[in-house]
């Protein structure tokens, strides 16, 4: 363990109100983090998933948006933080919502690339679209739609240097949680290899979401062995195996490992097996809403220490902190 450990946390829930941005980034820095996952998805809650959704923010032109985030960029720099990844708004495509889909494809996502580039982010997570459960939908139709769309992003990826990562997703069905796009590592590999081949270079990678994987009851070992070095980005968080709680690791099991929390040993062994050397990035925004505001620094510090443990484990194969 040395100075090279890379630990990050998402900005969701911390910066949207635009109050004391510099103070927020200092708080993240003071907790120990060196990186942030910039949650652009917080700026556009899609009407498809939220009745309050509005795309108003992204109706500003690109320069206005870059001006808006200049304060964030400066604050990040002053705090000594780097932006390791950006999360784009989602979903990009919803059946029978052509106007909205056009807005997402032609306005929101291209503007996110510009913002990500200005923040210095090397990766942006974009959810692959869900079509398989639509009436007349299928996994094949979903693949066709996603490949067609993501191929259109190759020029902007090359232009901005911001690579796209697919994320393993779930869907809420009538009988509970079911698999969504990229929940099967072979499917994710198919997307990544096909698109990288079409791009002629590595433009696409994978974001491994620990909580989503726990919800669909798949193990990490398959993901690690099949996707290997394509795993570029992490979304680390825990849940009860039923809801997407986005909480601190180790808080969903009890005495004798009862409960349905993430199997963190399995997770860390899998990352160790592929020699993961990226940023240990926590997607734990719920923590910041769940704990009282005055406890945010303490909660962030605890999350950071979990990150140190994870980085230690995966680099050395043990959890011994030095």
């Amino acid at each position: 363990m040395g100075e090279d450990i890379k630990i990050g946390v998402q900005t969701k829930g911390l910066i949207e109100k635009r109050e004391d941005i510099a103070g927020v980034f200092r708080m993240i820095r003071d907790a120990g983090f060196g990186f942030v996952d910039f949650s652009l998805d917080s700026y556009y809650t899609n009407p498809a998933v939220s009745p309050k959704g509005s795309g108003e923010f992204f109706m500003q032109d690109t320069q206005e948006l870059l001006d808006y985030f200049e304060e964030h960029r400066t604050a990040l720099k002053e705090a000594g933080l780097l932006c390791s990844q950006v999360h784009a708004p989602y979903p990009v495509y919803v059946e029978r919502r052509k106007k909205q889909n056009d807005f997402m494809e032609n306005e929101v996502i291209p503007k996110c690339f510009a913002i990500a580039e200005s923040l210095g982010a090397p990766y942006m997570v974009i959810h692959p679209s869900k079509v398989r459960y639509n009436k007349n939908g299928s996994i094949e139709k979903e693949k066709e739609l996603n490949l067609k769309y993501f191929e259109t992003l190759i020029p902007i990826i090359k232009e901005t240097g911001v690579k796209v990562c697919f994320e393993n997703l779930y869907e809420t069905g009538e009988e509970g949680i079911i698999e969504g796009p990229c929940a099967d590592p072979r499917e994710a590999l198919y997307y990544i290899e096909t698109l990288n081949e079409r791009a002629g270079e590595e433009c696409f990678g994978f974001c491994l979401d620990s909580g989503h994987l726990n919800l669909i009851k798949r193990g990490f070992a398959d993901f690690a062995s099949i996707l290997g070095e394509h795993i570029k980005v992490l979304h680390i968080h825990d849940n009860d195996g039923v809801a997407d709680n986005h909480q601190i690791p180790f808080t969903f099991r009890g005495i004798g490992q009862t409960g349905n929390g993430v199997d963190w040993d399995n997770y860390l062994q899998s990352l160790h097996a592929v020699s993961f050397d990226g940023v240990y990035s926590f997607e734990t925004f719920t923590v910041l809403g769940g704990f009282p505001g005055s406890l945010r620094p303490a909660a962030l510090k605890c999350i950071y220490e979990v990150g140190r443990y994870f980085a230690s484990y995966t680099s050395m194969g043990t959890g011994l902190l030095k």
């Binding site: 009860d240 909480q247 969903f252 719920t286 809403g289 769940g290």
Partner: peptide
């Protein structure tokens, strides 16, 4: 589970 307060708060 006898876990920490607030860690299940949504």
């Amino acid at each position: 589970l006898r876990q920490m307060p607030y860690t299940f708060t949504t």
